[in-house]
């Protein structure tokens, strides 16, 4: 059946469609990088000459540097919180014996995934007021952590389901304290999934616009800064900033994916 010429023809068509989709996804992103090194002072084609001027402007742009550091800080804080909440939740889910309780807790833990973005953002804006929290760093950290925790839960629950339970039982039988068994057996088994989930949570926070926009104070995160500049007219410097964000996030994504895959048992 694999020698069938008609079949091969259809697969060739599928392959062309696939590469078309890849071009469709990457071409607009490549445009940003190309525009970031053009000499013209407005965003447009055709390209006349190549310059690194906009990267120089970017490095002297205090507003950009502050926003970048602020975004990194928010990503670090929210990732720690999301990992803690997600790990605890995943452990509880896999410890529950009742199927319906497990399903209920799992669904409730995944609620932020199915909440439409704008609803998530405004409900969190309302919620931080209830908590007495002003818009700003803590609000952003909390909002990002709430958004990223379900991803951590899903990745860790999947990993826990493949854990050889005999090892924990053996440790317990040999008299290990539950905490000891957790630290020596469960945690090492979860480590690659935790690393993968951490990278995802970092990216979720660093990339997030909606929650940062509604939960932020005067200091913008990097995506909020870019959003503001896109509205206030296009300076070519924005291309350099967007290129840096693009390359940084995609490299982190690939690094995280490699890390996660390498640590997987064959």
């Amino acid at each position: 059946m694999r020698g069938d010429a008609d079949m091969r023809g259809r697969h060739a068509a599928l392959r062309v469609f696939y590469w078309g989709a890849v071009v469709w996804l990457f071409l607009p992103l490549a445009l940003i990088a190309v525009m970031s090194v053009t000499g013209s002072s407005f965003v447009g084609f055709p390209i006349e000459r190549v310059t690194m001027r906009w990267y120089g402007d970017m490095l002297r742009d205090a507003e950009f540097l502050r926003a970048f550091l602020y975004s990194c800080g928010a990503a670090a804080g929210s990732t720690v919180l999301a990992l803690a909440a997600g790990l605890w939740t995943a452990l509880a889910i896999s410890a529950l014996r009742s199927t319906s309780l497990r399903a209920t807790l799992f669904c409730a833990a995944c609620l932020p995934i199915v909440t439409p973005g704008i609803v998530s953002a405004i409900s969190l804006r309302i919620f931080i007021r209830l908590l007495g929290l002003d818009p700003g760093y803590m609000a952003i950290v909390l909002g990002h952590a709430i958004h990223a925790a379900p991803l951590v839960v899903i990745m860790l629950v999947l990993r826990l389901r493949t854990m050889p339970t005999e090892q924990v039982e053996a440790a317990r039988t040999l008299g290990a304290h539950p905490a000891r068994a957790f630290l020596d057996v469960t945690l090492p088994w979860l480590a690659p999934a935790i690393a993968g989930a951490a990278v995802l949570a970092l990216l979720e926070s660093f990339d997030d616009f909606l929650r940062s926009f509604f939960l932020g104070g005067y200091q913008p995160t990097l995506p909020v800064l870019i959003y503001g500049r896109l509205f206030s007219g296009l300076s070519p410097e924005i291309n350099a900033i967007a290129t840096v964000v693009l390359l940084l996030t995609i490299s982190i994504g690939f690094a995280g994916e490699r890390l996660f895959r390498r640590a997987q048992p064959a």
Binding site: P28, L31, M35, V43
Partner: peptide, 26 residues
């Protein structure tokens, strides 16, 4: 390869589409 573009920010992707479709765009 299909997942990778989604690692970057929605804002960056929106900007990319502006560069593609604007009057002076690609």
């Amino acid at each position: 390869l299909l997942i990778a573009p989604f690692w970057t920010s929605e804002i960056v992707r929106a900007f990319a589409i502006m560069l593609l479709l604007s009057n002076h765009g690609a």
